[in-house]
Amino acid sequence: MSRLQATGFVIHRRAYRETSVIVDFFTRQYGRIAVVAKGARGAGKSDRKSLLQPLQLLMFEISGRSQLKNLGLLEAVQSPIRLQGLGTYSAMYLNELLMRAIPETEPMSILFEQYQQSLLQLAELDVDSPTEHVEVVLRNFEFVLLQDLGYLPDFTTCADNAEEIAPQQSYCFIAEQGFVRCPPTQRYALSGKDILDIEQRHYTQSARKVAKYICRQALLPIIGDKPLKSRELFVSQ
């Protein structure tokens, strides 16, 4: 029976049989993987149960010949990342997005680094931090996710004729294609200046609004139109 080592974060867990849980990890080495943690559920306290929580980088072993592996050795690499307020809901959103968007066992090392960096950036925020700081963290993560999956649009040229995006022109965004010129009066017309600002990660108030719209539309073919539960938490705040 082969044993593999990995480092990663818990992004989801669900009950399995009487005392076990199925844990979804987002790992540096293997992307998203699901493993069975035996004895991790029940009334008693255990180190394994306390470790299998989000926001903590873990090192662990997995083994087994079936598609659903078993969790072996488990230990913390560092202390849990502490979040509060919108930072907590943002991390839940990132985890739910990973569960819906990325296939299992496909390594995504760049996205993993962005995920870890995003959590650390969210940890720097306090309850009084402006919401735009959270928005920038989320948009940057979504753009890396879209890039890794091959869905990130070209922010410098038109999709239909390869003309350069012009700051004074208006464009419509078409998911899985990109930007095409349109009249400024057309519904959901976007400013070329905002598109170019996003390309440079220059997040003005207007660019943040456009970036959110683009990410929502670009993610639809990947995650579908079923609402994300974590987004409802933002609305309720």
Rank of each mutant, 00 (worst) to 15 (best):
L4F: 12
A6G: 13
V10H: 02
I11Y: 03
A15G: 11
S20Y: 04
V21Q: 15
V23P: 02
F25S: 01
Q29D: 14
Y30S: 13
A34C: 11
A34N: 09
V36L: 11
G39F: 12
A40M: 05
A43L: 13
A43W: 09
G44F: 06
G44T: 11
S46K: 08
D47I: 06
S50W: 10
S50C: 05
L51A: 04
Q53T: 15
E61M: 05
E61L: 09
E61I: 02
I62K: 00
G64H: 02
R65V: 13
L68G: 10
L73R: 15
E75D: 11
A76I: 03
A76G: 01
Q78T: 12
R82N: 05
L83Q: 06
Q84V: 10
G87V: 04
Y89P: 00
E96N: 08
M99D: 03
M99C: 12
R100Y: 03
A101K: 07
I102D: 03
I102G: 05
P103N: 08
T105R: 12
E106W: 02
P107E: 02
Q114M: 14
Q114D: 08
Y115W: 05
Y115A: 07
Y115F: 15
S118N: 07
L120W: 09
E124Q: 15
L125R: 07
D128I: 02
D128W: 04
S129H: 09
P130H: 09
P130D: 10
V134G: 01
V136P: 00
L138F: 09
N140P: 01
F141G: 01
F143N: 02
V144T: 14
Q147I: 04
L149E: 10
L149R: 11
L152F: 01
P153H: 07
P153M: 08
P153W: 03
F155A: 08
F155R: 08
N161H: 12
N161R: 10
E164C: 09
Q169V: 05
I174Y: 00
A175F: 00
A175K: 06
A175G: 06
C182Y: 02
P183L: 14
T185W: 06
Q186C: 09
Y188F: 15
A189P: 06
S191C: 09
K193R: 15
K193N: 14
D194T: 03
L196R: 13
L196C: 12
I198W: 04
E199M: 10
Q200R: 15
H202K: 13
Y203V: 03
K209D: 08
V210E: 00
K212T: 02
K212R: 15
L219H: 00
L220G: 00
L220H: 06
G224N: 09
K226D: 10
K229T: 14
K229F: 10
L233I: 10
F234D: 03
